[in-house]
Deep mutational scan, measured.
Amino acid sequence: TFYNFIMGFQNDNTPFGILAEHVSEDKAFPRLEERHQVIRAYVMSNYTDHQLIETTNRAISLYMANL
């Protein structure tokens, strides 16, 4: 899942690491979701930090390219 992918960046001092920290603390994050459209919609609806949203979009693109 995307959640498992992004958790691989925990403790990294990178934008993906920052995203992983936010996702791990977000109890409502769709952890079992595999459809990138649902993940993107969730982030757009629940996150207000523009940098975090952009990082999510980049992470989703990388995740999709590696499926």
Rank of each mutant, 00 (worst) to 15 (best):
residue 3 Y to V: 02
residue 46 N to D: 02
residue 10 Q to N: 07
residue 15 P to M: 10
residue 31 R to P: 02
residue 65 A to Y: 10
residue 35 R to Y: 06
residue 42 Y to F: 04
residue 54 E to S: 08
residue 12 D to R: 13
residue 52 L to I: 10
residue 5 F to T: 00
residue 65 A to K: 12
residue 8 G to N: 11
residue 13 N to K: 12
residue 49 D to H: 05
residue 26 D to G: 03
residue 66 N to E: 13
residue 47 Y to D: 01
residue 15 P to K: 07
residue 23 V to W: 03
residue 23 V to S: 01
residue 48 T to D: 11
residue 37 Q to S: 12
residue 56 T to P: 01
residue 38 V to D: 05
residue 36 H to A: 15
residue 57 N to F: 14
residue 16 F to M: 10
residue 25 E to S: 14
residue 6 I to E: 01
residue 62 L to N: 04
residue 17 G to S: 08
residue 17 G to M: 05
residue 65 A to Q: 12
residue 28 A to H: 14
residue 50 H to I: 14
residue 29 F to V: 01
residue 34 E to D: 13
residue 51 Q to K: 13
residue 41 A to N: 12
residue 40 R to W: 15
residue 1 T to P: 08
residue 6 I to N: 00
residue 42 Y to E: 02
residue 4 N to V: 09
residue 48 T to P: 07
residue 3 Y to A: 01
residue 57 N to Y: 12
residue 37 Q to V: 08
residue 47 Y to V: 04
residue 42 Y to A: 02
residue 24 S to V: 07
residue 3 Y to E: 00
residue 9 F to I: 03
residue 9 F to D: 00
residue 59 A to H: 11
residue 23 V to H: 03
residue 48 T to C: 07
residue 60 I to S: 00
residue 51 Q to A: 13
residue 42 Y to K: 00
residue 62 L to Q: 07
residue 6 I to P: 00
residue 57 N to L: 15
residue 61 S to Q: 14
residue 51 Q to D: 13
residue 58 R to H: 10
residue 25 E to M: 15
residue 54 E to Q: 08
residue 3 Y to S: 00
residue 7 M to C: 05
residue 19 L to M: 04
residue 3 Y to Q: 00
residue 24 S to C: 09
residue 27 K to L: 11
residue 41 A to K: 09
residue 6 I to H: 01
residue 56 T to I: 14
residue 30 P to Y: 10
residue 54 E to C: 08
residue 62 L to F: 06
residue 57 N to K: 11
residue 10 Q to V: 14
residue 11 N to R: 08
residue 56 T to V: 14
residue 3 Y to G: 00
residue 17 G to R: 07
residue 36 H to I: 15
residue 41 A to E: 14
residue 2 F to M: 02
residue 53 I to F: 05
residue 37 Q to F: 11
residue 56 T to F: 15
residue 5 F to D: 00
residue 31 R to F: 06
residue 20 A to D: 06
residue 16 F to L: 11
